[in-house]
Simulated scan of single mutants.
Amino acid sequence: MAANQHHDAQLLVVDDDPRIRQMLTRYFEDEGYGVVCAADGAEMRSRLRQRNFDVILLDLVLPGGADGLDLAREIRAQSDVPIMMLTGRDDVVDRIVGLEIGADDYIAKPFHLREVHARLKSILRRRQPQARPAEPPVEEVVGFEDWKLNLSRRQLLDPEGREVELTTGEFEMLTAFVRHAGRVLTREVLMDLTRGRSLEAFDRTIDAQIVRLRRKIETDPKRPQFIKAVRGVGYVFTAKLD
C-alpha cells in the first residue's frame, strides 16, 4: 500500500462483473481507500444499511430488475452521497438521465484507473470542508431575491429560511451563477466552472443540470425568472443579488 497516499475515504463499488470489482478494489485499496463491493441492487442496499460511504461507483447495467439509473434515483432520494456512474453504454441519453437524477460524474468503460481516480479525487475535494483556522472564519453568504446561499457551509436557504438540499453538481452550478450574476455564460464556461476539467463537449449535460437546479429554486421551472436561457449562447443569472 502506498502509505503516503492514505485517504480514509470509503468507497462502495456496485458492479455485476467480478473482474471490474476486483480491479477497482485492488487499485483503490493500494491507494489507501477503504473499498466495499456489491454485485446488484439488493447487495448494495444491504451495504448501505451497514455503513456510510464517501462515494458510490455505480454500474449502469445490473441484474435483478433494477439498473444503475433506478438505483441512483433510489440513493438520491435518501442521501446526497456522491455517485460516479461506470458503464459500458456510452450513450448520450444515459449520461443526461444519470446527471439529471443526481449523479456527480459519468465515465464509460473501458476506462483508465488513473482517470477514475482523478475524477474521484475531484469529487472528494469539492465535498471536503475547509480546515478550520485558529480564528473563526467569516462566512461568505450571497443573497438573491430573499434566498441565501452560504458558500462556506455549502447551504441554500429559501425565502422562508428552510434549507434546500443540493447535490454537489447543483451547488457548484448555483455558485457559478451567483459569482457571475448578469453575465451570459456559455455551456463551455459553465462546464469549466463547475467541473474544473475538460469534459466531452455535449451541451445537453449542462442543460440537464440546469433543469434540476431550476426545479429547486424557481417558482415555475418552465418560466424561469432566475436562470434564463440565451438562445444560441448559454445562460444568464438574472436574479438581483442582495
Rank of each mutant, 00 (worst) to 15 (best):
A2T: 12
A3T: 04
N4W: 00
N4V: 14
N4G: 15
Q5R: 07
H6C: 12
L11M: 08
L12R: 12
D16Y: 06
D17F: 01
D17P: 07
R19S: 07
Q22S: 08
M23D: 06
L24V: 15
R26F: 10
R26G: 01
D30C: 13
E31F: 08
G34R: 05
V35Q: 04
D40M: 06
S46N: 12
Q50S: 13
D54S: 08
I56Y: 01
I56M: 06
I56L: 08
L57T: 08
L57E: 15
L58W: 11
L58Y: 05
L60D: 06
L60K: 04
V61G: 02
L62V: 11
P63R: 05
P63M: 10
D70T: 14
D70S: 09
D70F: 06
L71N: 07
A72L: 11
R73K: 10
E74A: 05
E74N: 07
I75L: 13
A77R: 15
Q78N: 09
D80G: 04
P82Y: 05
P82L: 11
M84F: 01
L86T: 03
L86A: 03
L86R: 01
D90G: 09
V92A: 08
I96P: 03
D105W: 01
A108V: 11
P110T: 05
L113R: 10
R114K: 11
R114W: 15
V116Q: 06
R125H: 11
R126A: 12
A134R: 06
P137T: 10
W147T: 11
L149Q: 01
Q155I: 11
E160M: 09
R162V: 04
R162W: 00
V164I: 14
E165M: 09
L166H: 01
E170N: 07
L174W: 03
T175C: 15
V178I: 13
R179P: 10
V184E: 04
V184M: 02
L193S: 12
E200T: 11
A201Q: 09
T205F: 06
Q209D: 14
V211I: 08
L213Q: 03
I217L: 01
T219N: 14
K222H: 14
F226K: 02
F226P: 01
F226E: 01
R231V: 15
V236S: 08
